[in-house]
Design a binder for these strands. Sequence first.
RNA 1: GGGCGAUUAGCUCAGCUGGUUUAGAGCGUCUGCCUUACAAGCAGAGGGUCUGCGGUUCGAAUCCGUAAUCGCCCACCA
Length: 874
Amino acid sequence: MNETATKYDPHAVEEKWYAYWMEHRLFHSEPDNREPYTIVIPPPNVTGVLHMGHMLNNTIQDILVRRARMMGKNALWVPGTDHAAISTEAKVVAKLASEGINKHDLSREEFLRHAWDWTDKYGGIILKQLRKLGASCDWERTAFTMDEQRSKSVIRVFCDLYDKGLIYRGVRMVNWDPRALTALSDEEVIYKEEQSKLYHLRYKVEGEDRYIIVATTRPETILGDTAVCVNPNDERYTWLKGKKVIVPLVGRAVPIIMDDYVEMDFGTGCLKVTPAHDVNDYMLGDKYNLPSIDIFNDNGTVSEAGGMYVGMDRFDVRRRIMEDLQAADLVEKVEDYVNKVGHSERTDAVIEPKLSMQWFVKMESLAKPALAAVEDGDISFVPAKFRNTYRHWMTNIKDWCISRQLWWGHQIPAYYLPDGGYVVAETPEEALVKAIEKSGNASLTLDDLKQDADCLDTWFSSWLWPISLFNGILEPENEEFKYYYPTADLVTAPDIIFFWVARMIMAGYEFSGKKPFGNVYFTGIVRDKIGRKMSKTLGNSPDALELLDKFGADGVRMGLMLAAPAGHDIMYDDSLCEQGRNFCNKIWNSFRLIKGWQVADEAQPEASKLAVKWFGEKLNATIAEMDDLMGKFRISEALMAIYRLFWDEFSSWYLEMVKPAFGQPMDSATYNATLGYFDMLLRLLHPFMPFITEELWQNLAERKDGESIMYAQIPAAAKADEKMISDFESVKEIVAGIRTVRKQKQIPQKEALELNAQKSHNPAFDAVIAKMGNISALIIKEEKDPTAAAFIVGKTEYSIPLADKVNPEEEIAKLHKEREYYTKFLAGVEKKLSNERFVANAPEAVVAIERKKKADAEAKLATIAASLSALGAN
RNA sequence: GGGCGAUUAGCUCAGCUGGUUUAGAGCGUCUGCCUUACAAGCAGAGGGUCUGCGGUUCGAAUCCGUAAUCGCCCACCA
């Protein structure tokens, strides 16, 4: 380490200590007698790269884990990645396409080989990047949602739920992603407001020369129309009862149905019904036994069943059909219209509601204990407002569509028999046994069984994450599971509360009988300076690795944390990281100062003795404050507390008080106390800024190989001497008063001054005042010196005799200003006290405070009056 | 359409069960200083009728109502 550099250089330091921590396996945890503290990482996508959100989220987790470790707990942070079925498969498909390979020309096995190659190559890059941030994960436990243990757990759970009757297969209207070519769960659909059109189309009434007008946003779906619906109470349309209308262009006659689902005042009051491509229309179709014409292929082009525009994309059809309708004079009008359109969370494709055969989980019974856990506070949410969101979702929960028409993921363990029917089993061998039993056909072989081609939703493996990491599904009695589970805290972003958090809670109770974690800390969303969400398309997200490089990991961590109270979005700006970097520098330079001191065996100066005593109290108070704040997950406030202790109290006051004169040595008592304090400050800072604290801690004293600040304990708070702390605040004010006088009168610090004080002055810290103010003599003197520059601290007036330098008029003006303030203040207090109802109703303590305020203000005014009269004014 | 949350200094936010807060912090701004740890620094200063209105109370930034603005979540009006 280069002790002469005035700037902290994070680069070499970070690499060195991370390697040291790894080499000595300091992140590794095994069950022992200590209290466990466990966090499981929200697994990032296996092919993802580090972004601002990850940095925030993982910094918080690291702070919690490192702090727990330093409080003597057996801390474990388990890392891992998620196979992210849809997005990974999409990436692999795109990569193959760029090589001229079409996914569908490959067998499932061939495709999976490519996918695994891709995963091996790019997978886990993000985990390497987390190391640069300082994440103290137990990398030996790195897991993957598709590794063997996790995969087996998933399959076991599927079979278990199936056996319990909680998983079923059926034809339902699902959200279809025509780009990823798979069904999605409701949660994977993002509704976005879009500027679109409302098309008013003319439907001819069969056998009459009359038309009705139907309003739609999707004219292309008329190909699938099988009815037109009006409200039975709508008098405009009673004449339509029992009639049929002709679908424009298509020429098909469809019945008029009457249902009060239709809003009379929307559009024209006529609704076209396309049961195959709209959830509500499906419901109507079901109710009125309408035929359902599926006019789209899986990729969103028109199918043979559409009869026209076959093979054309749905959006091209929209344009074309409108041209054709215009030409046939079947368009009444076109209005601008804003509506919400569902998009795929992963591919952003516009969702097509589609009827298909899928697998579902019945959620109602799973939700019950999970809801109760949060309602009863067994699991607490930070901030608590997310309980509302959670409650609402849980009480309106719908069945979960878990099948995905993908290859990358856990293949559904359902096996179809040659003569129909299927069995669900953990392995093909077990399936065969069940199949033989079910069919009564003993000659069946493995080749006769055909496994369901679909994969499971990614979240069907993620919801088991906390349990499956400790193998709690397959071996619920294993030692690790019993020790580490339930985990302590979960740190995640609120946008996956339904995807993940809620489902983990359900899985926790269902598969382990216990909650998966005690607290859920919801982070904010990182936004840019003007409040926009950071996104690739906007290009407003700084490159995470560049930031780490520019400001150092500690600087970035601190910058993010300073602005990140729980659940509060943070507006990112580089100035935050600059502040973090500057703080690193401050710490660095304090260390340089301390290490530069010569130590001699001499008596401890009075000022140093006082400083040591005072800072000890201040340290105690801050430890207590941090304990309290961290207990409430007010992490940024805890950081601010230690930041201010270090910068304002330790650097600006303590070090200045004990600092020996230039070239002079320091007494060993003060020196050792200072080293002790510095050590303690480093410990308190370490969870937030792991690298610089390790570097300095290692250099602060001789350390054995393998020793680390990571395991240096943060002691429990002792009771602080509040009296001493508050007395010292007055001392600061006195010193500040002296500094102000010096500044106003342009008297340099090196010129010693005399200070007069009234007898109410507390002499306990005189040595400090003398040193910090460069005061040669502090004289208790009641009478006023008109040639002295005065200031008041508390009730006591202080003055510095300056002979000719004092301008009496300035002094008088200053006193008048103070008098004005205190007169007003006193009037306010007196008004309160003269209110009988206040005195009668307010608690005694509150009244006493007001009385003291009054007495203090009066004393102060008396002091001011005396000073004024001494100056010959009033 | 329902719900939730926010609105406090130029910016980002504290202020928890109303009373030692006629309101605090960090950053930024302004003024002096390259003082032998640190100019990414030091010493100071200025800056707010707590979104508006009404109410409860002896007392309101804090509780209640209401309006406005913003944000988020949920929902099957084409």
